[in-house]
Design a protein around this nucleic acid. Structure first.
Lengths: 219, 219
DNA sequence: TTTGAGTAGATTGTATACAAACCATAATGT
DNA sequence: ACATTATGGTTTGTATACAATCTACTCAAA
């Protein structure tokens, strides 16, 4: 059980449920950037009153996944190309630091967790199953974050993945895209497992640069 | 007007006001780590109903500044020494990245903003005014974050400062501590302004290491 | 045709009431 | 004396009503 699931297990209120479902939908792009969310509509949809909807929306705006309009309205966060590049730059720094730290701290458990996550990526990519791949890809990166042994670094990195999820999801248009991504993971893992922290950091930066370029193309 | 102030200017609800006041009190240590917050007590204190109090608390738990008890209760986040060191490690990485980026991107405006902020630190330190120094110190670091030109990096760094504020505040016990800190800034600025990004990064890491050690001693 | 004022409906923020869950203490049983 | 159960008070989560604010549309005047 990772940090996020532990938190979830203790909270089963309507507000929490709504927050999670919205977060999931945003991450996979089912709620599009810029889309307006409507309290009363959401209340009807989730079979609850406005109160837990508002509480969920408050938490999501505090997390930056939603943004509050100047006068009214709550919207799925959207970003210009410039903003997206700034987010990726920030993400770049975090991910490179993660890779460097992991390469210095690998142990049997973390190594096998990363390998297991990558196996799932390969299975999904070879099956051409986009939905499964999106999920496996997130799990792969999460395994790397967890391998830092630092929950705060993992949380920051995860937060950036949440924010960029909808944009990144669009680059996996074809079965070939899935296979390419899974192959890129192999090279990344090789560098991280080399215990050469500079190589690990550089490899992750390359991976993120490629990810960014594909994301720009797809958005 | 930086990112945070812009956001504030558009929101004057009771919930928002309560969130800000609690955040301020937590940052300066007026609300102690581990302290329990009580919805009805806060409602009375702020002259509002429980609803905006709950909304403020929801946002603060989403930001990690408060933590929700397993069954009930909301508490000011507290950290063991190990957790504090993990947070500082994460902060270390962000701050070092900031210093490196700033040294590569300095312009007249950002340079003069950093210098102005440091002047305020010196004034406060020489006056032995702890409260003013705490404020000026935060403004100094914020000027560095803003100089990255990347609001997302600045926001992450600011978030760590918010979380560690109560613990860091305790290291400024004497007037001499203020002067030492202000002198450390001078060295840091010199390296950042050298346009040598590796030196800037290393200098910031040294600064953060010293900060961490003093924080551990004081807590 | 354009502009400004007014209005109705929609949205937001909040207060309050109610029910469920939790917890501490007292009473009862072994 | 110790363990279990019951009870009352507190806390949490939510629904609903109300008031304030915002927005879009209509109509009249220039």
């Amino acid at each position: 059980m990772n940090l996020k699931e532990k938190d979830d297990a203790n909270r089963s209120s309507a507000a929490h449920r709504i927050e999670q479902e919205l977060l999931d939908e945003i991450s996979v792009g089912a709620l599009a950037p810029g889309q307006r969310l409507d309290e009363t509509g959401l209340a009807e949809r989730f079979g609850a009153s406005r109160t837990p909807v508002r509480e969920a929306l408050k938490r999501l705006t505090a997390q930056g996944v939603l943004v509050q309009g100047e006068k009214r309205g709550v919207f799925v966060a959207e970003y210009s190309r410039e903003q997206l590049s700034q987010i990726f730059e920030a993400m770049h720094e975090i991910e490179a630091a993660c890779a460097r730290i992991v390469s210095q701290r690998l142990n049997l458990l973390s190594r096998s967790e990363i390998e297991a996550a990558q196996s799932e990526c390969i299975v999904a990519a070879e099956a051409g199953d986009r939905t499964a791949y999106l999920k496996a890809n997130e799990a792969f990166h999460l395994a790397i974050y967890n391998a830092t042994g630092n929950p705060y670094i993992a949380e920051i990195a995860s937060e950036f993945r949440r924010r960029t999820g909808p944009f990144r999801a669009k680059k996996f248009a074809s079965a070939e895209d899935l296979l390419t991504s899974a192959r890129n993971h192999e090279e990344l893992i090789s560098d991280i497992f080399s215990e050469d922290s500079a190589a690990a950091s550089r490899s992750m930066r390359d991976h993120m640069t490629a990810s960014f370029i594909e994301t720009l193309k797809a958005n």
